[in-house]
Every structure is written in C-alpha cells, then in structure tokens.
C-alpha cells in the first residue's frame, strides 16, 4: 500500500520535473522536499535496528561474549544517549574515538574478533546484506533519538581532534583542488538540485547534518553510517580513500559534532 502510494508520488514528481518555465526549478525543489517528507512514513532502518540489537546482545566471537559490557563513554553497557556524546576521549585507549571506532574496539577486546577482519569491509555493497557494523550502529544511534548532542572538548586530545578536523575540513587538495568547505562552507549552496549544508559557518545546517546520520539511503536501498558519509564525500572530492575509523575521520566527526552542539539526534533518518 505504502509502496504503491510512493510509486504514484514519484511518478508525480517526474511530471513536475518535466515542467518548464521560470518556476520549474523552485517547484521541483518543493516536490523533492515533499518526497523526502513522505519517506519519513516508514523507515526500513527499523528492521536493521532489530538485527543490531540482537548482535549487541548475543554472545559472539572467539571469547563468546556480548557487547553489553562495552563502554561507549557513559559506563559499561550504557547505550541510551551514548551516540550523542561521541566522539570523546577514552582513558582506556588514550584516544579520541567515534562510535564506529569504539564499536570495533569493543568487538576486538570483549568478543575477541580480529581487528583487520572486522574492518576489512565495514560498508555493504549495492544489494548486499548490511554489515554487522552497520546493523549495530543503527541500533545504538536509535537509542539516542531526541538526545541533545554533547561532544566534550574538555580533554586536550578532544580539542586537538576538533582543531585537526577544522583544518582538514578546509584543506584543498587533489586534482580538483576541493576541500570539504568548497561545497559545505557557504549558505544556500546546491550541487544540481541537491542542497548542501553549510557545516562550518551555519549552526542549523551543521546540526541537521550531524543529527540525521546514520541514515537510510532510499536510492541505495541501504543504511549508511557517518564513516560511510565521509568516505563517499572524499570519493567525490577526488581524494584517496579515508581508512575506516582512522584519526582524520574521527577528527572530522569531532568537528561536525561540536558544530552541532545541543541539537537533538534524529537518526536513523531517511534520505533520498
């Protein structure tokens, strides 16, 4: 039923897109906005939340342990609100970690998985089953829905991560001379009809970007995490590939998170 309604709606959008004249672009954008709103109805990420919860609670790995003793920064086993305060400094590793790197750490230390094995393929390919990392991330971020983002900047390593993230955000490089800021540093910019959040100078935009990832991407039929989001930006930026959960990715996520301070998490969201 819902699918039929969506299909009819998409057909309507296509007709609207064909319209020409001065108002064509504006109305096409309105239609896209309506389409996005419509998508909020049924988020396929809900299925993945259930799988992620199972994976979190099951005894798995060489050590036959669950992740329920994993400390995400609010104490061992506390999942509620945990995603909204990451990245943060962890004394046990003496590192700043984002959710995905912390999850890998817990899978390795608590469950005995091999780090190289776990991080070999963190993102599912087109049409493939979602990875365990994607499923668990979806479960954990859902447990922060409505929780305000609070990224600590009290530890010197947290401040250093933010500053490196800010520098990398503005770093132009590669054959196209692009930085993150080329597309995400000015209000009201678009690529084609796609709105680009101004992450460095607009608190509202930064908040919306940070609080709506991870998200279910309708066009890919898959849940995508924040690490994936950065990875796909760098692909289009014509950079080499960021290593999963590497320091620079954590630095950038820290920069984004601090800029989104106080906004309420609204993830997993659903996007185009």
């Amino acid at each position: 039923m819902k699918r039929a309604r969506l299909a009819a709606y998409l057909a309507g959008c296509a007709v609207a897109m064909l319209a020409t004249g001065a108002q064509a672009q504006g109305s096409a954008q309105d239609e896209i906005a309506k389409y996005r709103e419509m998508l909020q109805d049924a988020n396929p990420a809900e299925l993945l939340i259930a799988r992620g919860e199972d994976l979190w609670k099951q005894k798995r790995g060489p050590k036959n342990a669950s992740l329920e003793r994993c400390d995400l920064g609010l104490g061992a086993g506390v999942v509620k609100g945990a995603y909204a305060q990451l990245p943060r400094y962890f004394a046990d590793t003496n590192e700043v970690m984002d959710f995905e790197s912390r999850l890998v750490y817990c899978m390795v230390t608590l469950q005995g998985f091999d780090r190289a094995e776990v991080t070999k393929k963190p993102f599912s390919g087109t049409g493939q089953r979602q990875t365990d990392i994607e499923a668990i991330t979806t479960f954990v971020v859902d447990q922060s829905r409505g929780v305000p983002v609070r990224i600590s900047q009290s530890h010197p390593m947290e401040r250093a991560a933010f500053e490196r993230g800010r520098q990398l955000f503005n770093m132009r490089g590669g054959p196209y001379d692009f930085s993150c800021a080329t597309c995400h540093g000015v209000d009201g910019q678009r690529i084609r009809l796609q709105d680009l959040p101004n992450i460095s100078h607009n608190k509202q935009d930064a908040a919306r970007a940070f609080t709506t990832w991870p998200a279910y991407r309708v066009s890919q039929g898959a849940l995508r995490t924040m690490q994936w989001r950065l990875n796909d930006c760098f692909r289009q930026q014509r950079f080499p590939e960021p290593i999963f959960a590497s320091q620079s990715t954590i630095d950038l996520i820290t920069f984004l998170g601090v800029n989104a301070e106080g906004a309420k998490m609204d993830s997993p969201a659903i996007k185009r």
Partner: peptide
C-alpha cells in the same frame, strides 16, 4: 595535521 592526514588515507 598533515602528518595525521597522511596516515589516515590509503591509495
């Protein structure tokens, strides 16, 4: 920062 960046990417 550049040192960290260079260790964070792969070809």
């Amino acid at each position: 920062t550049m040192k960290v960046v260079k260790s964070s990417f792969k070809a």
